[in-house]
Nucleic acid binder design. Structure first.
Lengths: 344, 344
DNA sequence: TGAGACGTGGGTAACGTTTTCCAAATGTTT
DNA sequence: AAACATTTGGAAAACGTTACCCACGTCTCA
């Protein structure tokens, strides 16, 4: 049995040109819908392309023009919220020539730098950074090399556009909801943050700020536990809160995964939500709608965030120098069964 | 305010060569650890690279040599099982120069072709296809253009290596478990499949086969409902089963997400698992371990699948012509609280 | 009728690497 | 000391595309 047919040479633009009896320039123009082609030539070239099954080499294109590639850096493949964002991006890019390529940065600064560099090295036409944790100078450097849109990070830059959820307001929605249900001891579990820039720019920090602000507005005392934005963080934070003499009557977890950990801790302590303690999350990830969980949460409309970011990126690719925009989208409270009027 | 500093020209190999006082060939050799470099030259070149902050252009490299890029096509960003696979791949690639880039094919044949073509056009050094649904000729064509490893699709090819879970056996584990618990009316919800090739190669088809085989081995009558591998499919399938006069005492859903839909339907009918009906899934996705769900399922060790596939791919890149391998990994039953002895 | 504008097409030089030679210097064997 | 092998380095030709510029013919208008 023959092992593998001879490594067939790729069909190039030269082959197409010869086959159509025109110059490579002409073929290139047709490919890019550039100026200076007659209808007859276009159809002849198109026919040749089809007959030969020609596909332009992105590698070669990259050296002179564009690669028709857009890179998306996402911190964590597991977080279903990012999937919503990706859907929005993909939908907006569907009609275009652009191909979406993703890379995970594993929520790690070194890895983020590696990913962004890799995208620049590959001459991508634009990059979309989702919730990057890198220091600002790095982000600015990236934006200087390639059209960039940042998702899920507040603060404005002259180099890149940004799209965020209004986390400050979103946290306020949760507090208002719980306060209206009669809760007065509402605790918040946040992602611990010390870096001053991140304190001003990361969504988790703004949610904590919004929580504190709203609590004071309602005449209540903020009560924050610092752990991390994952299931363990929620579990540990809830344990801290439950071990107190005077327990909160409601817990606002900064993210849905955190709320899951809170529910774990509650179950372990023989308590239930909302019977004993009301629990709310943030993100409206798919599992929050699941019956037995039915988590009250905040929807930041990842789909729309993604679509908006994609639009901004295409605009920036078209004109890299135009002034940047910061888009903030309004969140929406999703009431489910994990929150209820307080019994006290 | 200046809008954007002058688009700084990239540092190229020529700059490095000039700065180090050697030829570009020399720099290239150092970069690739190629033969013909003295230790002195190496250190001089390395110093120049560091001083200038040089990074090779993957685009230019692609035209002659390799791109140090590996593409992963995954059908669905939302399925957490694929995240496990990606972890395994990433771990195995961590020490190497390769960069992982992913693209979603949205479980659609046209889109799959677009993604694989995009990867070939970008001269990727190798591609990993996860659970592709494309017809065999297309897969073979891809494998002829680029070193390829296929994950989650049975059947052997002379062109690509493959890594799969032993789905046939896995389904048998579930049946054996349920039968041991005394169940005799065990229904299965499968993903409807008609294409003959896919019936022989897709994991869902093999799970259904394994189920049928195991049922007969236990002297039981197979009872299959055909819907689709998602939450709706599970819901609809369970509804069909519940509307019967004689209900099954256990339902084996072909995937965890399907089991979730089954639980939805049960809850809606005022039934519970395992009290009224035992429920089992497949994949051991993260949420199956979540307390209130606690789903009995089959673990196919995505991490190991990913790592194995990455190893095979690197081997194939090193020697594209060596004979292909088909690796089948053994699944493991994970018993949780959604299955229990039958009451009848 | 001449001058310019416009439409159509092509020639050629990049783009930044790697690869394939080849040459010189150095070391080793007869 | 000659012949040969090995090491070290460089020159130059790809790789496949696009950008820039120029040439030619036709049309329009003064």
């Amino acid at each position: 049995m023959p092992r593998r047919s001879a490594p067939t040479r790729r069909v190039t633009i030269v082959d197409v040109a010869r086959h159509a009896g025109v110059s490579t320039t002409a073929v290139s123009k047709v490919l890019r819908d550039a100026y200076g082609t007659s209808p007859q030539m276009r159809s002849r070239v198109r026919a040749a392309i089809d007959q030969l099954g020609y596909r332009p080499s992105a590698a070669a294109r990259a050296l002179r023009g564009r690669t028709y590639t857009i890179g998306v850096m996402l911190p964590d493949v597991r977080n279903p919220f990012f999937a919503d964002v990706l859907d929005g991006v993909a939908e907006h890019l569907a009609g275009t020539e652009y191909q979406l390529l993703m890379a995970s940065s594993c929520d790690d600064e070194t890895s983020e730098a590696r990913v962004t560099n890799a995208m620049i090295d590959r001459s991508m036409d634009g990059v979309l950074l989702i919730a990057p944790i890198s220091p600002r100078p790095h982000l600015d450097r990236v934006a200087r090399s390639v059209p960039t849109v940042v998702i899920g990070r507040h603060g404005s830059s002259a180099g890149y556009d940004s799209v965020t959820d209004d986390d400050f307001t979103g946290a306020g929605l949760v507090v208002a909801h719980l306060a209206a249900l009669g809760h007065r001891r509402i605790a918040h579990i946040e992602h611990h943050e010390t870096d001053p820039v991140r304190l001003a720019e990361m969504p988790n920090a703004l949610r904590a700020d919004g929580y504190r602000h709203a609590m004071r507005e309602h005449g209540l005392a903020p009560d924050v536990v610092s752990t991390s934005y994952n299931r363990d963080g929620g579990y540990l934070g809830a344990r801290q809160l439950l071990n107190r003499g005077r327990r909160p009557t409601a817990i606002f977890a900064g993210a849905d995964v955190v709320a899951l950990g809170v529910l774990d801790a509650l179950a372990e302590a023989g308590l239930s939500a909302p019977g004993d303690i009301s629990v709310a999350g943030y993100d409206n990830t798919t599992f929050s709608a699941y019956g037995p969980i039915s988590l009250t949460t905040v929807d930041q409309n990842g789909h729309r965030i993604g679509a908006t970011a994609a639009r901004l990126l295409l605009d920036r690719i078209a004109d890299p120098a135009h002034p940047t925009a910061q888009v903030k989208l309004s969140p929406r409270l999703v009431m489910r069964r994990s929150t209820a009027p307080t019994l006290n």
